[in-house]
Simulated scan of single mutants.
Amino acid sequence: MENLIAWIIRAIPFGTIIMYGAMGEILTEKSGNLNLGVPGIMYLGGFAGFASSYYYEKLMPNPNAVVCVIIALVCCLAASMLGGLIFSFLTITLRANQNVTGLALTIFGMGVANFFGVFILNGASYTAAPLANSAFAQKIPVLSSKLGVVSQTVFSYGFLVYAAIIIAVIFHLILNKTRVGLNLRAVGENPATADAAGISVTRYKYLATCIGAGLSGIGGLYYVLDYNQGIWATTEQIEALGWLAVALVIFTTWKPLNAIWGAYLFGMLYWLYQFLPNLLGIKVASYMTDLIQMVPYVVTIIVLIVASFRKKKENQPPANLGLSYFREDR
């Protein structure tokens, strides 16, 4: 039982990171834009949030935890949305290839974060922002300690875990119950028809891509200031999580609500190698670890194959995904 609880406790924060990245990419892809720059955007958001909170703690004699959280979130959103704006300008206005631009944005985001991170590290292998970590990892009072197993598995996380679930629900309602959501889906499915109906295709694509980038950036922020205990290091773990987020988009068939359970399932599968042997009372050879960690990707491929065979419209990506819109060709 203890191993199972530990597995869940490890999987939920891990899943939250990729849930933010996936929700941001789902929003972007609903507009018809395919942004493969999610890992780079998560890098930008994570570093900007960490750097701002780190210098706030360092320079202020009596730093306040609430102010620290606000500064980190604002800087994270600003940096990641700037990455989304760069992508939007290149692919929507200049009509550059979306695949190439996204991959370039991943390299750019990682490069910028690691370049400026050198000044913070100042020769060390890592550095930390303890006040920001304690603020982002703050548990819910009373509920985190009074309900036994429920407290351990449900109420023992920072506020961004619960915010991710709320955002996913709101995102689902907007997409399926509002005119804005209908217009956004129309832009992704057939921008020429949407344009003819008076919908501003360019505006919807810009807004969806930039807001989606902001959501993805929060995933990077959560990784650094909560999941990684407020530590910035020279590892490339955020990149791997960014690609997992992209895989999760396909796994969830572009549905925000599916991102909730899908992200936690990915978390369970990712840590399968560490907890399953103890739960089953077996030993796993060290060379099998990497193979077991491939399970989330294998599951994604299986889901993609099954969805393609079933050919259900609701399980398919937007029809115009990855294609630039030329109004003159309408």
Score class of each variant (00 low, 15 high):
E2T: 12
L4V: 14
G15F: 11
M19R: 00
I26Y: 03
L27I: 13
T28M: 09
E29L: 09
V38D: 08
I41W: 03
G45F: 14
G45E: 07
G46D: 04
G49Y: 12
Y56G: 01
A65K: 12
C68F: 04
C68S: 15
I71Y: 10
A79Y: 03
G83D: 03
G83E: 00
F89G: 03
T91C: 14
L94K: 15
N99R: 05
T101M: 06
G109D: 00
N114D: 09
P130V: 01
A135L: 01
P141H: 10
Q152T: 05
F159R: 12
V169L: 15
V169R: 10
H172K: 08
H172T: 15
L173Q: 02
L175K: 03
T178R: 10
G188L: 12
P191I: 11
P191L: 08
A192N: 13
T193E: 10
A197F: 05
G212A: 06
A213Q: 05
A213N: 05
G217L: 07
V224F: 14
D226Q: 13
W232A: 08
Q237G: 00
F251W: 06
K255C: 09
P256N: 15
N258R: 13
W261Q: 09
G267L: 03
G267M: 07
F275H: 05
P277Y: 02
L280R: 09
L280I: 08
L280S: 11
G281R: 09
S286W: 09
D290Y: 12
D290G: 15
V295H: 04
V306K: 09
A307N: 15
S308E: 12
K313C: 08
E314R: 14
Q316P: 04
A319W: 00
A319D: 05
S324V: 12
R327D: 08
